[in-house]
């Protein structure tokens, strides 16, 4: 692979990571003023902000790698759903608090493992972002872990809602461990994380937490994929409509 190819591949990979971060950030931010109580409302916005910060770092870096004068805003606001390459789990609606926390648990456990590997990336910027994010993720995971226990091992109602959430989301977790040709090249170059290798540890950790929360680990009976190639659920278009509206209505607006 030539240096230009490598740069181009890295740019696409970094955009994926940025897409995951911004879409999840936006979903979590929808809880603003809708949280179950004030402290939880604040906590969710803090987590959303951490993901937004990651998105900005990734998009800024992707723009730099691309070298065509685009900015982080172009990546966030001026791409349509087929150009977004986030994992589907991040775009699913928040539904209820149980769904939000179950997704957070799956993603937080994944990120704990993923970022630990990204620290070793030969790409200095990716390693630097990971060094910041890995510390924040420890806080995220502790909270989603605690909420999973509280809801799973709580009332009959909270248990049922948490189990429904786990069942509804389970088929979207497999995509987190897919490695395509682009990522394979970058893994070989020491830049990308081999996420396929993380599944056994992820499953072990998630199984332990769900079991502790008296929840049942679902069987792997169905799988949905497509985010990395731009095939999304219906939900992403609605999300982008809201997220991009201001920028598209008033291009380049600042305040």
């Amino acid at each position: 692979m030539t240096e230009t190819d490598l740069k181009q591949a890295t740019m696409q990979y970094v955009t994926r990571l940025g897409d995951d971060s911004i879409i999840l950030s936006h979903r979590i931010s929808e809880w603003c003023s809708n949280g179950p109580f004030l402290e939880e409302d604040l906590a969710l916005q803090n987590v959303a902000l951490d993901f937004l910060g990651r998105a900005r770092m990734y998009f800024t870096y992707a723009a730099e790698l691309e070298g065509e004068g685009r900015t982080e805003d172009d990546f966030a606001y001026l791409r349509d759903e087929r150009q977004y390459t986030n994992l589907l789990i991040n775009e699913l609606p928040r539904v209820d608090f149980a769904h939000t926390m179950a997704r957070q648990l799956f993603v937080d456990v994944f990120n704990t493992l993923f970022l630990q590997q990204q620290l070793q990336s030969k790409d200095e910027t990716l390693a630097a972002v990971a060094a910041k994010a890995v510390k924040e993720t420890r806080y995220h995971l502790r909270r989603s872990h605690e909420w999973t226990l509280r809801l799973g091992d709580g009332t009959a109602e909270s248990h049922q809602r948490m189990q429904n959430a786990v069942d509804n989301l389970w088929g979207y977790t497999h995509e987190m461990f897919d490695v395509d040709a682009l990522e394979q090249q970058l893994i070989e170059a020491g830049i990308a994380v081999d996420s396929a290798a993380l599944r056994p540890q992820w499953l072990e950790k998630v199984t332990a937490i769900l079991t502790e929360a008296t929840l049942t680990v679902p069987e792997d009976s169905w799988v949905v994929r497509g985010g990395r190639t731009g095939y999304h659920t219906e939900n992403l278009g609605h999300l982008l409509t809201e997220m991009q509206f201001l920028h598209r209505a008033h291009p380049g607006v600042t305040w």
Partner: peptide, 13 residues
């Protein structure tokens, strides 16, 4: 501790 996350990202309550 009341909350793991406080008024800004760097604080707890």
């Amino acid at each position: 501790r009341l909350s793991e996350f406080g008024s800004t990202a760097c604080k707890a309550l």
